Amino acid sequence: MTGLIPWQQRLSNGTEDIQDEVIRWYQQTRHGKAYVPNMIWGTLQTEAYASVILRRVVDFLGVPDDVAAGVAKRMERQQVLYDGEHHYDVILGEQALYTNVGGPEVMRGQMERLLRDIELPSLTLGILPTAAEVSVVPMPGFNVYDGGRAHYELVSSGVDITDPDELALHEKAFNAVSRATSYGDAASRLISKALTFWNRG
């Protein structure tokens, strides 16, 4: 089964309510997975980075402006990284380290955050190198949650997938990307390279 709800409907009261919903998803997920090719995974975003992202969402969709409240909720959701009860396997595309969100100062802070949090026991963070060969066709990012659900964020809608056969394909796709991904010191070197780039900016 696939569920699709337009963002303007889901965000009709602003960004705070949906952040509450996402907090519940993460609290209920003991072992989650995320593939995010072009931006930083929301649960690792700095406050400054998240503020830029949610400001762009509000301005683009024309929904009520409660950016500060939405950012506060996004920061609250990050507690799952520190409570000792959850684990997340996260793959960022190397492009995510260079997609300009808020300019060099914001990006420097974000790279420093990644370098710090890559050591968290609750997190397996990998970077998919730009030129890595992956044994699956290019695809948009997605999250996989406990309880049998994958989630996509598209331009106009959020999409939830619950069909077991489709979920199995998402697991297969994540594993294919993972085999081409750099972890540990190799991932840290890619993040450090991006930090150097933004320091020059």
Rank of each mutant, 00 (worst) to 15 (best):
H151E: 15
L97A: 09
T15Y: 00
V177D: 02
G42I: 05
G62I: 08
D65L: 08
G102P: 02
V134T: 02
G14A: 04
Y26A: 09
D160Y: 14
R24Q: 14
V159H: 06
Q28W: 07
Y35P: 13
V22H: 11
E47H: 10
Q9G: 00
I18Y: 14
L115P: 10
T124A: 12
Y152F: 15
L154S: 10
V137S: 11
D17H: 06
E105R: 13
Y35C: 05
A180Q: 01
S178D: 11
D17I: 07
T196I: 03
A68L: 00
G141E: 03
D160F: 13
I161D: 12
A176T: 01
H31C: 12
Y82M: 05
S157E: 13
A176V: 02
D117C: 04
L167N: 08
V57R: 01
A180F: 02
T130Y: 09
L4W: 04
L190H: 06
E76T: 11
S135C: 00
Y145N: 10
R149A: 15
P6H: 03
N175T: 11
S122W: 01
A186T: 08
G70D: 01
V36C: 09
P138S: 02
L61W: 07
A180L: 03
P104T: 05
E47K: 15
E171F: 14
P121C: 12
F142G: 05
G184Y: 02
V136T: 08
I191Q: 06
S51T: 11
A150Q: 06
E85C: 11
E16S: 14
